[in-house]
Design a protein around this nucleic acid. Structure first.
Lengths: 347, 347
DNA sequence: ACCAAATAGGATACCGGTAACACGGAGAAA
DNA sequence: TTTCTCCGTGTTACCGGTATCCTATTTGGT
C-alpha cells in the first residue's frame, strides 16, 4: 500500500489540525480549548477533548513558543554536576521554576570560561527565558552577549560589584576571613592556606584574599599559599598530599583548606603520619559536606547556602519574568562557621 | 517618538530576515550560510557573516526545530538532584550528548511515579529527541505514553525484563545478594537488613529480594526487614536510629544498609553506644559514597557505576538517533563489592 | 418585532526558520 | 553559434501553533 507523505507517527505526530478534523472544528478552536477553555461552548469543548484523548494528542510547545517568542526554559550552567554543592543549587532552582511551569536546561562548563561562553551561545539559540550562571567570572564576549540578549541572568555562588544582571550568593572573601579569624581565635598562629587554582575562579581568588586579610589584621605572617590542581574531580588524596608537602616546608600549626574533601583527606593523612589533630595541627575546610561530619575528628568548616542560592535565583527569575522590577539585584545569603573538633585546640 | 510594532530587542530580536536585508540577500541565503556554507559563493558568504556579526545575530533553534520536528533536547528524569549518585549519572549523559550538540533537560520526580508521569507529559510537549529515566517503575499511563511517542527511551539504575525501550544498569538484586553473601563469608550470621520504602522503588524491592535469597541459600533465617522512611533527604541520623531500634529487637551481628549514608550514621552511633564495629557488629552499606571511605572503621559497600550508566545511556541514545539498530537494548554494567574495615571480623 | 450587544467559531496572517523547486547566467560541449 | 550543465540565488510552501479580526447566530431589552 502507498504511504501518504505524512505518516502518522502515532501520538508524537498527531497535530492540532488532525484533532480539529476529528472534532469537526478548525484548529483555532482546538487551540482555544487548551488556552482559553472558557471561550468555547461546553459541547464543542467536550467534542474536542474527546478527539484529543482518542488521538493521544500532545501539544507542541515549540510551535506555540515560536509564536510567543519564548521557550519556557530556564538554562543553568554549573562548573560540574559531580559536586553535590552545585547539584544542590540546581535542585533549588529546579524546584522553584518547575513550579511555575518552566523547564530546566542544564549544562556543565568544567570550570572553564571559554567553554561557558560557547555554551551560552548555543543556549541562547534555544531562546531560554532566563539563565543561571555560577560565579562572576565570564569572558567579555559572554557578558556582552548576555547583556545584549536581555533575558534575566542570575549569577550565583559569589557576590560582587558588577553582576551581568542579578546575583545571589555569599561572600567567599568574608567567609575565608571569618574562618581564618576563627582559627586565630582558637589559638593557631602559623596558618597555611590550601586553595584551588584561582585564574578562572573568582571564588578561589576571593577566599585567598579573605585569608590574607585576616592574617594581616592579626599581625601574622602568612605562609605562601599552597595551590593544588585537581584534574578530573576534587579528591581527598590531594589534601593528603598537601599535608605531606606542607609539614616539610614550614612549621605550620593549622591548615585551612578551601574544600572539605581536601581537608578530610588531610585528616586521614595526619592519622597515618601520627600527627595529632587538633592538638598539633588544626584543620579547617569549606562547604560543610557530609564527609566532614563523619570523619574523626569532625571537621570545622564553612557552611554555604548551596540549595538556597538556587531557590533564590529561581525566585528572582520568576519575579522578573512576571514583570516586577526588583528592589535589589544582589542578594547576599551569608554563610556560617561550623566549629567542630578538628580545630578544638586544647590549652 | 513612535515605536514600530517590532521593537528591535537588540540581539535577542534580530532575525534572519534582518540579516538578509543588511547583506542584500534573502533569508534563504542566510540560512544556507549557516547550514550549507559550501553552497554559497564565498563573497556572498562573507557579506552575510559580516551582517550577522554586525547585528549580533543568534539563530533561533526553536524555529528550525519546528521545521525539522525536533528540539535537539535530551530529557532526563531523576528522583532527586540532592543525591550525588544521580547527579553523577546526569554528568555522564550530559558529557556524551552535549558532545553531539544536544542539550540536556532535567527534572526531578521526588521518587514519585505520579509526579514522573506528569513530568513526562510536559516533557513530551517539548518534543525531546530522547528521554532518560531512572528505574523501571512507572505508571502504566507513562509507559503507554512513551511507547506511543516513539522516541528512544533509556531506563537507568536497574536491569529488568520489560524495559519501555532500552535499559542500562546493574542488578540490585544480585548486588544485595553478593553483599549478603560477603557478610556471611566474613562470619556474620544474624544479618539484619535496613531498606528504604519499596513501594515506588523497584531498586529497593530488588535489593530486599537479593538479601532474602542469599540468607535462604545459606540456610540462615532473616530477621524482619527494617524499613526506614526518610522524608526530605537521606540522612545519617536515620541509620543511627535504626541501630538503636535493632539492637533492642534482636541479637543481630551485622547490619546491611541499602545506603552508605545510613550505614555511616550507624557506625557513628555504634561508637557512641560502645558497640565495636566490626567485632561485635558488622556494618555494610551501598553505593560507595565518599563518606564510607572517610569514616572509621571504613565502610564495606557496593560500588555502582553511577556515571557510567549515564554515559552509556547517552551512547545508546546517540546510536539510535543515528539510525542504528542496537544489538542489545539492555546493558548490565555490573557492580563490585568493596570490602573494608567495617566487616573485617576478627576470628 | 426590531436593533444592540454578547457569544461562538472561522479565516487569515504570522512566528523564524528550512526543504524543494525554479530560474537566470556563465562556461563547456557540440 | 547553439544547446547542455552546473552554479548561485530567489520563490514558494510549510512546520504547528496562536493573535487578531470578522462573521453569523443568539439573546435581550423595549
Amino acid at each position: 500500500m502507498t504511504l501518504k507523505k505524512k505518516t502518522s507517527r502515532s501520538g508524537s505526530g498527531t497535530t492540532m489540525a488532525e484533532v480539529a478534523a476529528l472534532a469537526g472544528v478548525t484548529k483555532m478552536t482546538v487551540s482555544r480549548v487548551l488556552r482559553h477553555p472558557e471561550k468555547v461552548n461546553p459541547d464543542t469543548r467536550k467534542r474536542v477533548t474527546t478527539a484529543m484523548a482518542e488521538l493521544g494528542y500532545i501539544a507542541n510547545r515549540l510551535a506555540g513558543g515560536l509564536n510567543a517568542g519564548t521557550s519556557g526554559l530556564v538554562a543553568a550552567i554549573v562548573p560540574t554536576l559531580r559536586h553535590s554543592l552545585f547539584a544542590d543549587t540546581l535542585e533549588g532552582i529546579s524546584d522553584v521554576v518547575s513550579e511555575a511551569g518552566l523547564g530546566l536546561f542544564v549544562s556543565s562548563s568544567a570550570y572553564r570560561s571559554d567553554v561557558e561562553e560557547s555554551q551560552i551561545r548555543s543556549i541562547l539559540e534555544r531562546r531560554p527565558d532566563a539563565l543561571m550562571l555560577t560565579g562572576l567570572t565570564h569572558t567579555k564576549a559572554a557578558r556582552d552577549l548576555l547583556r545584549g540578549f536581555g533575558i534575566p541572568v542570575v549569577e550565583t555562588w559569589e557576590t560582587g560589584d558588577d553582576p551581568v544582571d542579578m546575583a545571589v550568593g555569599y561572600s567567599n572573601r568574608e567567609a575565608a576571613h571569618a574562618m581564618t579569624a576563627e582559627l586565630i581565635r582558637s589559638g593557631y598562629r602559623r596558618i597555611a592556606f590550601v586553595n584551588g587554582p584561582a585564574e578562572n575562579n573568582e571564588r578561589a581568588r576571593h577566599r585567598a584574599e579573605g585569608y590574607l586579610a585576616a592574617m594581616k589584621e592579626a599581625g601574622l605572617s602568612a605562609p605562601p599559599i599552597h595551590v593544588v590542581h585537581d584534574e578530573a574531580a576534587i579528591r581527598p588524596e590531594t589534601g593528603a598530599k598537601a599535608i605531606r608537602v606542607l609539614r616539610q616546608q614550614s612549621d605550620i600549626d593549622a591548615v585551612f583548606f578551601t574544600s572539605d574533601i581536601f581537608a578530610v583527606g588531610a585528616i586521614l593523612a595526619c592519622r597515618e603520619l601520627g600527627i595529632d589533630v587538633p592538638a598539633q595541627l588544626g584543620i579547617a575546610g569549606f562547604h560543610d559536606l557530609d564527609v566532614g561530619r563523619v570523619v574523626s575528628p569532625t571537621l570545622t568548616t564553612v557552611q554555604v547556602p548551596a540549595m538556597e542560592m538556587g531557590r533564590k535565583a529561581g525566585h528572582m527569575i520568576l519575579a522578573r519574568l512576571a514583570g516586577k522590577r526588583l528592589a535589589t539585584h544582589r542578594q547576599d545569603l551569608g554563610f556560617s562557621i561550623i566549629s567542630r573538633e578538628s580545630t578544638r585546640r586544647p590549652h
